[in-house]
Nucleic acid binder design. Sequence first.
DNA 1: TCTGGGGTCCTAGGACCC
DNA 2: TCTGGGGTCCTAGGACCC
Length: 386
Amino acid sequence: MPPLPRSIAHLDMDAFYASVELLRYPQLRGLPAVVGGRRATAAEDPAHFPRLRDYVGRGVITTATYEARALGVHSGMGLMKAAQLAPDALLLPADFDTYRHYSRLFKAAVREIAPDLEDRGIDEIYLDLTALNPDGSREGAHAIALRLQQAVRDATGLSCSLGVAPNKLLAKLCSDLEKPAGITVVAADDIPARIWPLPAKRINGIGPKAAERLDALGIHSIGELAAADVLWLQEQFGERYGQWLHRAARGQDERPVVTHSEPKSISRETTFERDLHPRQDRNELSQRFTRLCEQLAADLVRKGYVGKTIGLKLRFDNFHTVTRDLTLPNPIGEAAAIRRAAGECLKRVPLERRIRLLGVRVGNLVRRDAIPDHETPTPVQAELFA
DNA sequence: TCTGGGGTCCTAGGACCC
DNA sequence: TCTGGGGTCCTAGGACCC
């Protein structure tokens, strides 16, 4: 007997950050608006909304309303470029605490109906609905999706889109087909008609680089990728990725919905308002570096981890990025110890250009409460190791 | 006036051990 | 002395995702 097909959903909030802002400022509904840029300062009047054309400085768009998207603006786009396309669009500063609050609300509402939930960040989740839709019917899947949509709306006032399919890959693809507030259900039979005409880059895992290489090889649609010879794909893209491309294009994906996972690393990074010179701006650089380590140490305490691999990340004014890391004999978590280890990493980087970004990371994480007392480094020991 | 911040996973070479 | 594998850890970079 072949295993019963699963019923997997992907739920994606519609223009999440921007939609949360519209709950706060309903008078902006229907207008092009984007979320992004630096945090608001206390001096700014929260009811006065600057236009994109007034913005000066670094940053990208985090979310654009559908009205702004119609003007060609999308997330990830630099604010200065977006200002050219949509100078009159409103610019709303990001407020992550509020977004996290609404994230918890919608996930709790979904969990009441479908407890097998995998977190995929602040605004999307996977759900295993197999037990809720035992016959695997389209009608059953659609009914559950409608209930979920309504529950999310009741809990938050926000809309979401759902895809329901036999696996995560297809569910993710489908949740995007009828946005906003859409529901798309597909079965294996629908793949040739519904999935194969789509561009290959719509597959989660085919990014800009792979899409460009596929294009150059004459493969544009998922169907063309499905028709390509697997050995040839492996020659072009490597054994593993070639095999994965072949399976993905055919709608094959066995990954389970993972309801619990532990973090592998925790990091903090910052892009400076202006590029800092390694010697002329040495003091400022050093202060920002220390501050990042303090914030990271606080994050580690709050989340209950320590780690033994400390990493440093630098981005230069030409956008070239380098990383260095150092693995210590014992896990650490204190700001001073992190600062010292990351300082050792910094000594291994030649500093010949101005610095745009500085980041610090702690990996090889261990839960604080999992460390036997005799292994818990005291501050003094931590300093000796660092 | 280009290009945020938080992550995961993969690859590949070298060290080191069996 | 030379020739080998295999496994694991460390490090650096890169692709990709939200």
